[in-house]
């Protein structure tokens, strides 16, 4: 099941923020699969992702996890899917348990990459 924990990370709501987040996730899940949460369109590889047309994305650790979700497996393991939602000012990561070691590390990395993005925007405005 996907849990009810929303991690909201300040971000510039552009495709680059989603791209950077996905790249960070790939550091932990190199075999990740993707799905447009709004259209159910699937992507097997990073390079297929049309970031300019995505605002909500499901990310599965691998094909097995994706299949389990597709089959409606009610016993899907904890954190077997992340739900990324890009908005104008934030990136929201919805997940089961943010307190596992892997998720703590992954969320910290996503946050640092998005903070870097924002800081360059502030520098531009200054």
């Amino acid at each position: 099941m996907i849990g009810g924990t929303d991690i909201v990370i300040p971000a510039k709501g552009d495709p680059e923020a989603l791209d950077a987040s996905v790249r960070m996730i790939l550091e932990y899940w190199p075999q990740a699969r993707f799905e447009n949460a709004l259209t159910a369109e699937k992507y097997n590889h990073y390079e297929e992702l049309p970031f300019g047309r995505l605002s909500e994305l499901f990310v599965y650790p691998d094909a097995l996890a994706e299949k389990a979700w597709d089959q409606g497996d009610a016993n899907a393991p904890v954190n077997s899917m992340l739900y990324l939602i890009l908005s104008a000012d934030n990136m929201t990561v919805v997940l089961d348990d943010p307190y596992t070691n892997e998720m703590r590390s992954m969320l910290a990395l996503i946050q640092s990459s998005l903070t870097w993005e924002i800081s360059s925007t502030y520098a531009e405005a200054a």
Binding site: A20, M24, E27, L109, W116, E124
Partner: peptide, 19 residues
């Protein structure tokens, strides 16, 4: 892009520079 994974350095991605 730069980051740290468990305290270890990471270069990742090629991003546009808003400056």
């Amino acid at each position: 892009g730069t980051g740290l994974i468990d305290g270890k350095p990471l270069f990742h991605g090629f991003y546009s520079d808003r400056l």
